[in-house]
């Protein structure tokens, strides 16, 4: 990754939720970057903070109970660098970016569209909000967008309500809506998780094609390693509110560094290889309100050392463009470990 065309940099982002009795550290020091016109896949298990990170970028953290308590979200635009974490979420400046320069699509196509408004209206609303256009022009553009996402007979479907469409069609409409203002960054939060495989394949192909035409960077959130492999240029692996590993897609799949990533690869059944016994990661994901003080993966890690229990490992480069947050890759810790082994 060259820093010249970095589009968005998230640095040490922390988002906390105040639920009665405890503070949930949903995002607990997340650092990553997205380059323009590239696709970053963000993978991680349920509850690890993928959605909350995305919402933080959009300025959409529900508050209360949520709050960005630390870190920066640096958005590189023509006029310079803006820290989105510092902008008032409901302010003019944030609203001009949200939905316009940075757009987002959500997981549930069935509930993400307003059931009482037509598809066309919901797309036009975005267009007229951010661009100087008459209603008629906006409608023409909405039809064009629907055509671009492969909805048949867009002139007719533009006046339909969401319930008249299937899940796949709705997700296409959501994509049309998000792309209608030509964003530079599209955040897609598990856009195909709720869809059937054959429909998922359609939508993924569509997104791959659109990516070329629209020149947008994509932050693609998913928990499906298969989807990441097919969609992403770069991958960030999240665990318990942190990025534990980030690299190009090939590096992640061919030489995973973090024990969690390695464990994940071994625990998924493969469609392409012959059957072998799965090697699961033992234990369960801790609750984010009760996270371990050191490395979040320590309780389940087969490689754990004593330092892992006490101190969270920083995210460091293990190779050019390949970062991992694990004490195994801290040179001096290696020495310590070797010595310890020698004693045993």
């Amino acid at each position: 990754m060259t820093s010249a065309d970095v589009l968005l940099e998230v640095r040490d982002l922390e988002v906390h939720f105040a639920v009665p009795g405890v503070t949930v550290r949903a995002v607990d020091g997340v650092t990553y970057a997205i380059d323009s016109e590239r696709t970053l896949g963000v993978v991680g298990e349920s509850g690890c903070g993928k959605t909350v990170t995305a919402l933080a970028i959009m300025g959409l953290i529900p508050s209360p109970p949520g709050r960005i308590v630390g870190g920066q979200i640096l958005y590189h635009r023509d006029g310079g660098i803006v820290d989105l974490a510092q902008l008032p979420p409901r302010g003019q400046e944030m609203r001009a970016i949200r939905g316009n320069e940075i757009a987002m699509i959500f997981q549930e196509p069935m509930t993400s569209l307003n059931p009482v408004l037509t598809i066309g209206f919901q797309i036009m609303e975005s267009i007229t909000l951010h661009q100087r256009m008459t209603k008629r022009e906006a409608k023409r553009q909405a039809v064009e967008m629907l055509r671009a996402v492969g909805i048949p007979l867009p002139e007719e479907r533009v006046d339909e309500f969401p319930h008249q469409m299937s899940g796949g069609m709705r997700q296409r409409a959501m994509i049309a809506m998000a792309l209608s203002c030509n964003p530079v960054l599209l955040i897609a939060d598990e856009p195909t998780t709720a869809l059937d495989v054959t429909i998922q394949a359609q939508v993924l192909e569509l997104m791959n094609n659109l990516r070329r035409d629209f020149h947008a960077a994509i932050q693609f959130i998913t928990h499906d390693l298969g989807v990441v492999a097919g969609m992403a240029d770069d991958v960030a692996v999240m665990y318990l509110g942190r990025i534990v590993e980030a690299a190009t897609v090939r590096d992640i799949f061919h030489s995973p560094k973090h024990p969690y990533t390695q464990g994940l690869m071994k625990s998924i059944p493969s469609l392409t290889r012959s059957k072998e016994r799965l090697v699961p990661i033992e234990g369960i994901v801790p609750d984010p309100s009760d996270a371990p003080p050191g490395c979040g993966f320590e309780p389940r890690c087969p490689e754990r050392m004593s330092i892992c229990r006490t101190t969270p490992p920083p995210l460091v480069a293990t190779a050019p463009g390949h970062d991992a947050a694990c004490w195994l890759y801290q040179p001096d810790v290696h020495l310590v470990r070797r010595t310890l082994r020698g004693w045993k």
């Binding site: 959009m58 949200r98 316009n100 757009a103 959500f106 509930t111 307003n114 059931p115 609303e125 909000l129």
Partner: peptide
Amino acid sequence: DQDYVTTARAKGLGERVVVLRHALRN
């Protein structure tokens, strides 16, 4: 709390429009 309200906010709509246009009728 519905997803489509988040969608409306994600478009950059102001809170008043979100409430009056997207939430009220539902």
